[in-house]
């Protein structure tokens, strides 16, 4: 028998349950480093902006893969949809201000995620792979065929992006682009943190762990999956919109299978299920890509493939144990 009366215990529980949600020193250090890079690496802002966008995209995948166990071969569908939405908003002056356009593109991608989630929820991993891949390919085909609207294979040309909040115009050094992308990433990460540490987040983890039992304690499994899939789609759409806004261009390859597959690699490098995996993975992936692309620009996909095979053969479990050991030293988790 425990000695503590329920009241005391209850207060201890609140303490304990809330603990996961607290900001850790290493997290704060991560953001300090990110902010410092704005001032210390002015020459690298273009690639840093790319990293921030990829990180946001990977964060989006982590929400469904790491927290809900949904494997997607076509997460680029939402990225691309957001990218084209932002491009079209700007090109046709529907929404000029970038932050508003970003939000609108996110909502549009969320709507797409909501609708397709009902297809994704049906059936096994196999049907999920088929549907996610199929939806991305279908959108690519739509963008390709309706070229009077999208520019088809030439991409969406003539996208002029207005200054952010009416006062910060995008510049050639990528300075505004990086600060903008980093700010969006930070805000959405804080939101995602809230989400995964909430009762909703806990219930998602339970669905991933054992959907049968989750439904047996009254959790509406499908509704939760629809919700997180929709949120993840919004995140991906915002990442895509950021790409369009920071490059003033978007083309069919925003939907490509390679983009979805690379994203899986990004997330696996960093680790799933703790939000920062996508961010860390994005940094490593981009640096690696940069380095490999200077060595073998044409065949770098080979090395990506080799890396994927090696990761699986070594074992993600073993890798994450190494990472855990490393994290144990710095207490990230």
């Amino acid at each position: 028998m425990s000695a503590s009366p329920p009241g005391v215990l209850a207060a201890a529980l609140a303490e304990r349950l809330g603990q996961r949600a607290r900001w850790r020193p290493i997290e704060i250090a991560f953001w300090v480093a990110a902010v410092a890079s704005v001032f210390l690496l002015p020459g690298k802002h273009i690639i840093l902006a790319e990293i921030a966008i990829l990180a946001l995209f990977a964060l989006s995948l982590d929400l469904i893969l790491g927290y809900a166990g949904i494997i997607s071969l076509g997460h680029a569908a939402f990225f691309g949809f957001g990218a084209y939405c932002a491009g079209l908003f700007a090109k046709h002056h529907l929404i000029n201000e970038p932050v508003l356009a970003l939000g609108a593109a996110g909502l549009a991608a969320a709507a797409l995620g909501f609708v397709t989630s009902f297809l994704v929820l049906r059936g096994s991993d196999l049907t999920r792979l088929m549907v996610t891949l199929g939806v991305a390919l279908m959108l690519r085909e739509i963008a390709n065929r309706f070229d009077e609207l999208t520019g088809g294979a030439d991409g969406l040309q003539g996208v002029g992006i207005a200054p952010v909040l009416g006062s910060f115009a995008f510049d050639i050094t990528g300075h505004v682009a990086y600060v903008y992308a980093l700010a969006v990433l930070a805000i959405l990460l804080v939101l995602a943190r809230r989400l995964v540490h909430s009762p909703f987040g806990l219930s998602l983890r339970s669905v991933k762990g054992n959907a049968l039992r989750a439904s047996a304690i009254g959790i509406p499994v499908n509704a939760r999956l629809v919700a997180i899939y929709t949120v993840a789609a919004a995140y991906a759409g915002i990442a895509g919109a950021l790409l369009t806004q920071t490059t003033a261009f978007c083309s069919l390859d925003v939907f490509s299978f390679e983009r979805s597959a690379d994203l899986l690699l990004v997330l696996i490098i960093g680790g799933t299920g703790y939000l920062y995996g996508g961010l860390i993975g994005a940094v490593i992936f981009k640096l690696m890509q940069d380095w490999l692309a200077t060595m073998t620009p044409q065949y770098w996909q080979f090395w990506i493939g080799l890396l994927l095979v090696a990761i699986v053969l070594v074992g993600r479990e073993r890798m994450s144990r190494w990472l855990d050991a490393a994290r144990g030293l710095v207490r990230l988790r």
């Binding site: 529980l13 609140a14 303490e15 304990r16 349950l17 809330g18 996961r20 949600a21 809230r194 989400l195 540490h197 909430s198 009762p199 909703f200 987040g201 806990l202 219930s203 009254g218 959790i219 509704a223 939760r224 919700a227």
Partner: peptide, 11 residues
Amino acid sequence: HGGDWLRVAGS
């Protein structure tokens, strides 16, 4: 409360 998404669990 299972759908609450903005509140930290345990609060």
